[in-house]
């Protein structure tokens, strides 16, 4: 790991001033950045420790939403009463990710900025347009079982690894960004970019901006929600496919629906197409399957990950079925 200057920011203005230094990076829980620094994927000159900033509270918003400070630890957010009651899919998504130790360290803001687990991204001897623009993509034609089937481009097929963000995408969360220029708010579904031909640019955040909070709007349908994660071992592994779903049905007809996918796309994937199919449709296995197929219609497999298309369809169907029969969606 490169030696670097270290600065612990006592307050937000200090942090925002300090980030102007060349090669400066904010450091939260360190669970991703320190790992990447040790692998020399990230080599900042200055590290600004933001863990002492007063952004570690979960606050009630008028109307029943929540404002989650960017430095709230993953484990604390998952254990929060209001989250468990109003947004169970979010608690489940967080708890499905990483391990107890990592969730105690990792912050909400940091989770949004997690980088891909693509093997070619983390191997400096491999071609990777995300790590080194123009160096090619060795995942195409290589090990791409974990790669994306949705949202990929010729330059990058890497999946976004977060579980939490999948739930946030389904919940219409809003990301609050602050810089010396002011505060702005970006919907989570627009926060992560598709790779296109600039896979190195992963989010909408500007170089001088700090994530200060994530807002969860009041969303009654989310009280009946679920996060289902499918992976290669029973715990402590990244998703092959995950589904965040909230649904409400009345008299057998779907009246409200939120659906997002993880593990299959280059960003947390809000399943708009499926939602459109489902809204107003009968709450049946056939509708679920048809909507799942519609969502995956545009999927493009690589050499090893074609199974994700079928798996995602089945996972969507199974999760909605479970919501209907056990989850109080009806």
């Amino acid at each position: 790991m490169k030696d670097f200057a270290y600065l612990s920011a006592p307050d937000v203005p200090t942090a925002l001033q300090a980030i102007a230094r060349p090669g400066a990076r904010f450091l939260g829980g360190g669970t991703n950045l320190v790992d990447l620094m040790r692998q020399n994927i990230e080599r900042p000159d200055t590290v600004i420790d933001i863990t002492r900033l007063p952004l570690d509270r979960v606050e009630e918003l008028p109307g029943g939403g929540l404002r989650v400070g960017a430095l709230v630890r993953n484990s604390h957010l998952a254990a929060h009463r209001a989250v468990r009651e109003r947004y169970p899919m979010l608690a489940q998504a967080i708890l499905a990710g990483a391990s107890g130790q990592l969730r105690n360290m990792a912050t909400v803001g940091g989770n949004l900025l997690q980088r891909t687990r693509c093997a070619y991204f983390t191997d400096l001897s491999a071609g990777c347009n995300k790590r080194q623009p123009g160096s090619g993509c060795d995942a195409v034609g290589g090990f791409n079982r974990n790669a994306a089937v949705l949202g990929a481009s010729a330059s990058c097929v890497a999946t976004h690894p977060s579980d939490m963000c999948v739930a946030l995408a389904a919940l219409d969360a809003v990301v609050e960004l602050e810089s010396v220029r002011g505060v702005r708010r970006v919907p989570l579904t627009g926060f992560h970019r598709l790779p296109g031909d600039t896979p190195q640019v992963e989010t909408e955040i500007a170089a001088d901006e700090l994530i200060t909070a994530v807002e969860l709007p009041a969303l009654p349908v989310a009280a009946a929600s679920r996060y289902r994660k499918i992976r290669d071992r029973a715990s402590y592994a990244f998703a092959l496919v995950s589904v965040a779903a909230a649904m409400h049905a009345r008299d057998g007809v779907i009246t409200d629906i939120r659906l997002a996918l993880g593990g299959v796309a280059t960003r947390p994937w809000r399943a708009h197409q499926a939602e459109r199919e489902l809204l107003g449709a009968p709450a049946t296995e056939e509708s679920f399957r048809r909507a799942a197929e519609a969502e995956l219609a545009a999927a493009v497999p690589q050499s090893q990950n074609g199974f994700k298309i079928e798996l995602a369809q089945r996972a969507i169907t199974a999760t909605l079925r479970q919501l209907l029969t056990e989850g109080g969606a009806a």
């Binding site: 491999a126 071992r233 029973a234």
Partner: peptide
């Protein structure tokens, strides 16, 4: 290409 304990999956408690 999976020279790590996060990408080579040995059994965990669960």
């Amino acid at each position: 290409m999976n020279a790590s304990l996060s990408e080579y999956h040995v059994p965990v408690h669960a």
